[in-house]
Amino acid sequence: MQDLVVPLNHVLFVSTLLFTIGMLGLMIRRNIIFILMSLEVMLNASALAFIAAGAHWGQPDGQVIFLLILSVAAAEVAVGLGLVLQIQKRFNSLDMDDANRMRG
């Protein structure tokens, strides 16, 4: 395993790019399904950064946090998809801008 020479900052570059893409998706999409997907991408990107950092120091902590992120993602998706169904039923649309009842 000594010949693994992936530079840490390259992994972090990838993680950053993924995060930014996810954020861009969050900003440009109005469909709630895509918004949830964008969130998954962002969570995943941050998980990648944690894993990379953990691996850099040779410690398990990064993977522990990855597990935590995994459970957050699972819980979020479970609730989020329940909300998707409710929104589809209430507004007959998946467009988040149709569900802007909390407008100030």
């Binding site: 900003m27 802007n100 407008r103 100030g104």
Partner: peptide
Amino acid sequence: WLSFSQSGRMRWYMVSVA
């Protein structure tokens, strides 16, 4: 102005966060 910012649009909030 503030209530204008409270538009109820997710994307707008996200842009603010960004």
